[in-house]
C-alpha cells in the first residue's frame, strides 16, 4: 500500500523563503555596489568581500562551536549584514575596520540574542555605530581612494556634504555660499561625486534597489516613505523659516544616509514593527530623530542612531499598534 503524506491544511506553500527574501535584498544592493566599485574601485570590493566573509565565518563559528545549534549561514542573512555594513563605511577604510565591524555586528548584535529573527537592534547598524564611536577619525575620513576606472575625484572631497554644510554653518556662512563654494548640484547627488560612505554615493542606484524590492514585494513602502516624508516636512518647515541657514528638503533627502538607511536599514524585518500603523510611526520617529541630530546634534548625520533608537521602541509599537481587525466584537455572540 502506498504511504500517503498527511498534514493539516493548507497543502500548498508560497515560493518565498527566508533565503529568497534575503537574496532579493542583496540583489537590490547590487546597483549601489556596482556604482561604488565604479567610484572607489578595489577598495569597495575589498570592503564588501571582507565584510561578507567575516560575517558568514563568525556566524558559522558561533553556531558550530559555541552555541552548537543548527547552522543557518546559508540563509544569506549574515552575508546581507556584512554587505550592508561594508556599504556603510567610508570608502578608504582599512580592511581590519570592516573585520571588527562584522565581528561586532554578527557576534554581539545578532548571535548573542539567539541568531536570525531574535535580535532587537539592526546588526549592521550596531556594527557601524560601534566603529563610529570607537574609531571616530577613520570613520569620518571620507577621502576617496584611486579608482581603476577613472582618475580620483577632485581633491578636497574628504568630507560628506552634510559635514561640509555643518562646518560651513558653524563658520557663519549661508547655504548659498556653501553651495557655490562646493559646486553642489542635485544631479551630482543623484549620480554623486560627493563624498560619503561606500553605498551612499548614488541616490539613483539606491532608488533602483528600492523599486526592485517593492516590485518583488519584499518590503512595503510604509517605512521609507514615512522617513523620507518626515525629513521633507521637517526640513521644509525650517527651510521656509530661514533658507539662509537651513538646507532645502531635497538636499536633506539626497545627501547622507537617509536613502540607504530608510530603504535598507530601517526596513530590516527583524527590527521593524509588524503592523502598518506601527511602521508609519516608526518611520516618523526615525525621520524626526535624524533631523534633530542633523540640526542640533554633534554628528553631521544621525540616521544610524535614529534607527537604533527606534529599534528599541519596536516591541512597544507592536504591542500598541495592532492591525485593523475584521468586524467588531459583539457581546455573547
Amino acid at each position: 500500500m502506498k504511504k500517503l503524506i498527511v498534514s493539516p491544511a493548507p497543502h500548498l506553500h508560497g515560493n518565498e523563503s527566508t533565503k529568497s527574501l534575503m537574496r532579493d535584498v542583496i540583489i537590490a544592493l547590487v546597483p549601489s555596489l556596482l556604482v561604488s566599485v565604479y567610484f572607489f574601485g578595489f577598495s569597495a570590493i575589498k570592503l564588501a568581500l571582507v565584510g561578507v566573509a567575516t560575517a558568514v565565518a563568525v556566524e558559522y563559528v558561533i553556531q558550530r562551536y559555541i552555541v552548537k545549534t543548527k547552522i543557518t549561514v546559508n540563509d544569506y542573512s549574515a552575508a546581507l549584514t556584512g554587505l550592508l555594513l561594508s556599504l556603510n563605511l567610508p570608502p578608504n577604510s582599512p580592511w581590519w575596520i570592516m573585520f571588527i565591524g562584522s565581528v561586532v555586528a554578527i557576534g554581539i548584535a545578532k548571535m548573542t540574542f539567539g541568531g536570525v529573527g531574535q535580535n532587537l537592534f539592526n546588526p549592521a547598524l550596531v556594527g557601524r555605530v560601534f566603529l563610529l564611536v570607537s574609531f571616530p577619525v577613520i570613520m569620518t575620513d571620507y577621502s576617496i581612494p584611486t579608482s581603476w576606472f577613472r582618475e580620483g575625484i577632485d581633491a578636497g572631497s574628504g568630507a560628506t556634504a552634510l559635514s561640509i554644510v555643518k562646518e560651513g554653518l558653524a563658520k557663519g556662512l549661508t547655504m548659498d555660499q556653501i553651495f557655490t563654494d562646493n559646486n553642489f548640484s542635485y544631479a551630482e547627488m543623484l549620480f554623486s561625486k560627493i563624498g560619503g560612505s561606500v553605498g551612499e554615493v548614488s541616490a539613483l542606484a539606491l532608488i533602483l534597489g528600492f523599486v526592485y524590492l517593492l516590485i518583488r514585494k519584499v518590503i512595503r513602502p510604509h517605512i521609507p516613505v514615512a522617513i523620507i516624508g518626515t525629513v521633507l516636512v521637517f526640513s521644509g518647515i525650517f527651510w521656509l523659516i530661514n533658507p539662509a541657514i537651513h538646507a532645502d528638503p531635497l538636499f536633506n533627502v539626497l545627501t547622507g544616509g537617509i536613502l540607504i538607511g530608510s530603504i535598507f536599514m530601517a526596513t530590516d524585518y527583524v527590527t521593524s514593527p509588524m503592523s502598518k500603523k506601527g511602521m508609519v510611526i516608526y518611520g516618523i520617529g526615525i525621520g524626526i530623530i535624524t533631523m534633530l541630530i542633523r540640526y542640533w546634534g554633534a554628528y553631521p548625520e544621525g540616521i544610524s542612531f535614529a534607527i537604533l533608537i527606534m529599534n528599541a521602541t519596536v516591541p512597544l509599537l507592536n504591542m500598541y499598534f495592532k492591525p485593523a481587525k475584521f468586524g467588531k466584537e459583539v457581546k455573547n455572540g
Binding site: L21, G114, G117, Y269, V270, P273, P323
Partner: peptide, 11 residues
C-alpha cells in the same frame, strides 16, 4: 526556521 518577523502573515 526562526521567525524573521517579516509580517507577511500579518499582511
Amino acid at each position: 526556521s526562526n521567525c524573521i518577523r517579516c509580517a507577511k502573515c500579518v499582511d
